[in-house]
Design a protein around this nucleic acid. Structure first.
Length: 537
DNA sequence: GCCGTTTTCGGCCCGACTGTTTTCAGTCG
C-alpha cells in the first residue's frame, strides 16, 4: 500500500515529470511550472474532485489542468507514463546522494543501467561501479561516500511520515473485527523528530485471527507491530513508549503488577505524577514527577496564531485572504504575514515598494476578517555581514520582523555567530527564524555558537522560533531546553507556504513539549494585546 | 508551461560554488 490522498498523488506525478524533464535537459521554465503546480496542489486545503478545482489556481493552466483531469479519471498521466518508459522511476532517487543532480543521475543510469538506489548500492558494494570507464573522479567519489546516507534517508521517518504510516496501519487493522484497539507507541509517540520504524501496539483477544495483518506493508517503511491482551494493554503501552532509561527506572519501582486501567494509574501507583510521552526520556522527569513539579506542557489548543507565513507575494502558493481564512478555521485570533525580503530572489522576495503595495492589499481585505488580525510582517534576510537587506524606514512600519538566513551557509563558526548576533541586535528584529538552518536528513545545521545566540536572545528579548515544518523542527528539543534556561521566549511557527502547511503546528508543539515548554514560554499563545506588548519592547 | 496595466509572444529566477572548468555545465540553496 502507498501513502497519500489524490492531491498528493497528483502532486507526486507532477514532481516526477519535472524531474524527468530536467534530466532530459528540457526548458527550465517548463520544469519550474510543473514544480510550482505540484506545490500548489499539495498545499490545497481541500481534496481535488475535478479539473475546475485547479484550473483557476495561479500557475495552473490548460495543459496541467487537463493532466489533472486525466489523473483523476485514470490514476495516471500519459506524459508521466511515457517518461517512465524512458527513465525508470528509481533513477530520481540518485539525486538523494549529496552532489548528484538530475544530469548526473540520468548519466549514471545510462552508463550503468542501475535503476534504483538499491541496485546502485549493489554496484558499490561489489566495487563493480569502478569498472565503468565513463564514471570517474569526483562523481564516483560522491556516489561511494553518499549512497549509504541516501539509503538511510529513504528508510527513516520524519514525524509527518511516521504519523501518516501509523494512521494508514490503524485504518487497515481497525477494519478487522478481532482488533479491539490500535495505538502508537515507541519513539514516534514520544515525538522524536526522526525514527527508524513505526511501533504500533494492537489489542486483541485472539492473536491467531489477526496474523495475516502482520504482513501489512506501507511503502518500504519498517513497521513494528506488537500484540497485547486486555490485561496487559496499558502496561505494554507504557513499556513500549518510554526511552529505555525512563522505562527501566519506573520498572524498578513497579514490582510484579501488570494489570492497570490506564497509564496514569501506573505512575500514580508509585506516587508519581503522570509523565506525558514526550518527556519520557530519562532527563530528570521522574525526580520532578515524584515532587509533582512537572511542567504543565503546552498543547496545540494553546496556540492563538501563527507568526510566520508566506503568500503569493513571495514563494507561497495561496493569497493572503485564503491563508487568513485557514487560520480563522483553526480558531486562531491572529497571524503575521511574513513574505521573504528583496535579496532572496529565488523566493520572489519583496522590494520596499512591493512591501508597501502588499500593505494596501492588507488594508483592503481587513473588513472581511471579522475581527481576525493580520500583522504586517516580513521575513527579512540576514546578509553575510549581519546587516538586514531591507531598510530600517520600512522595518519600522511593520508590526513584526522575522530575521533568518537563507544564503552563505558555509561560514566559519565565529563569523556566523557574529553575523547572527549583529542581526538580532537590530532593534527592529523580533524573531530569529529557523535558528540553526538544519533540514532533517538533508542538511546539517550551520556552524554557529548557538549557546551564545540563545544567551543574547534571552538578554535582549529576541524571540526564538520553533519552526514547525517537519523537515526543520528548528530549534530542536535540546536547544529549546537550553534556551529556556537563558530566559528565552519562543514562538511556534509553521513557516506555511500554503494553507495546508498551517496544520504543521502540531509538530512544533510536540517539539516544544519535548523541550519542556509551557504555554507561557510561547508568545503565540498570548492574546493579541499581550503579544504586541512583547513585540514592541 | 504559464501569464498578460507594453496581452497570444516573449519573459519568467538568481548567485555562489565546484570541477571531467579556462568560458562552461551542473548543483545547491
Amino acid at each position: 500500500m502507498e501513502l497519500g490522498d489524490i492531491n498528493e498523488r497528483i502532486s507526486e506525478i507532477l514532481l516526477a515529470i519535472a524531474d524527468f524533464l530536467e534530466m532530459k535537459g528540457e526548458n527550465v521554465y517548463r520544469i519550474m511550472a510543473f514544480r510550482k503546480a505540484a506545490r500548489t496542489i499539495s498545499g490545497l486545503p481541500k481534496r481535488i474532485e475535478c479539473k475546475e478545482d485547479v484550473i483557476t489556481l495561479p500557475g495552473i493552466g490548460k495543459v496541467i489542468g487537463d493532466m489533472v483531469e486525466e489523473i483523476l479519471k485514470s490514476g495516471t498521466a500519459s506524459l508521466y507514463e511515457e517518461l517512465k518508459r524512458e527513465i525508470p522511476e528509481g533513477v530520481r532517487e540518485f539525486q538523494q546522494i549529496q552532489g548528484i543532480g538530475p544530469k548526473t543521475a540520468f548519466n549514471i543510469y545510462k552508463i550503468t543501467g542501475a535503476s534504483s538506489l538499491e541496485e546502485l548500492y549493489e554496484l558499490v558494494l561489489s566495487d563493480r561501479l569502478r569498472e565503468f570507464n565513463e564514471l570517474k573522479g569526483k562523481t564516483l567519489e560522491k556516489v561511494y561516500s553518499g549512497i549509504e546516507k541516501a539509503l538511510e534517508k529513504k528508510r527513516m521517518l520524519r514525524l509527518d511520515q511516521g504519523f501518516a504510516v501509523y494512521l494508514a496501519v490503524k485504518d487497515i487493522f481497525k477494519s478487522n473485527p478481532y482488533v479491539k484497539d490500535v495505538v502508537l507507541v515507541g519513539g514516534l509517540r514520544r515525538g522524536k523528530e526522526v525514527n527508524n520504524d513505526v511501533d504500533i501496539l494492537v489489542l486483541t483477544e485472539d492473536k491467531a485471527k489477526i496474523t495475516p495483518l502482520l504482513e501489512t506493508k506501507i511503502d518500504s517503511y519498517r513497521i513494528d507491530i506488537k500484540i497485547t491482551t486486555p490485561e496487559m494493554f496499558f502496561y505494554d503501552m507504557f513499556l513500549y513508549t518510554g526511552s529505555d532509561s525512563h522505562t527501566s527506572r519506573v520498572l524498578e519501582l513497579l514490582g510484579e503488577n501488570r494489570n492497570f486501567n490506564s497509564e496514569e494509574e501506573i505512575y500514580n501507583t508509585l506516587g508519581l505524577q503522570y509523565v506525558p510521552p514526550e518527556i519520557r526520556e530519562g532527563r530528570g522527569e521522574i525526580e520532578l514527577a515524584r515532587e509533582h513539579k512537572l511542567p504543565d506542557l503546552i498543547s496545540l489548543t494553546d496556540l492563538k496564531g501563527d507568526l510566520h507565513t508566506h503568500s503569493l507575494w513571495s514563494d507561497g502558493t495561496a493569497n493572503i485572504l485564503d491563508m487568513a481564512i485557514s487560520c480563522i478555521k483553526r480558531g486562531y485570533k491572529y497571524m503575521a504575514i511574513t513574505d521573504h525580503s528583496g535579496s532572496l530572489k529565488v523566493a520572489g522576495g519583496l522590494t520596499p515598494e512591493e512591501i508597501i503595495e502588499q500593505h494596501k492589499e492588507l488594508e483592503m481585505i481587513k473588513d472581511k476578517l471579522n475581527g481576525f488580525t493580520i500583522l504586517k510582517g516580513i521575513e527579512v534576510d540576514i546578509l553575510p555581514d549581519g546587516s538586514l537587506d531591507t531598510p530600517e524606514e520600512i522595518l519600522k512600519e511593520l508590526d513584526i520582523v522575522i530575521a533568518s538566513i537563507h544564503t552563505n551557509f558555509k561560514m566559519e563558526e565565529k563569523e556566523m555567530t557574529e553575523r547572527i548576533i549583529r542581526a538580532i541586535s537590530n532593534p527592529y528584529v523580533d524573531i530569529l527564524a529557523h535558528p540553526t538552518g538544519r533540514i532533517l536528513l538533508e542538511r546539517e545545521p550551520y556552524k554557529v555558537d548557538i549557546e551564545r545566540i540563545l544567551k543574547v536572545a534571552g538578554e535582549r528579548g529576541v524571540i526564538m522560533e520553533i519552526n514547525s515544518s517537519p523537515e526543520r523542527l528548528d530549534l530542536n528539543e535540546a536547544l529549546i531546553r537550553e534556551g529556556k534556561r537563558y530566559g528565552v521566549r519562543f514562538s511556534i511557527n509553521t513557516d506555511a507556504h500554503s494553507p495546508l502547511h498551517l496544520d504543521n503546528s502540531i509538530y512544533g508543539v510536540i517539539t516544544a513539549r519535548r523541550g519542556w515548554l509551557e504555554a507561557k514560554d510561547v508568545v503565540n499563545t498570548y492574546d493579541l494585546n499581550d503579544l504586541i506588548e512583547v513585540l514592541r519592547r
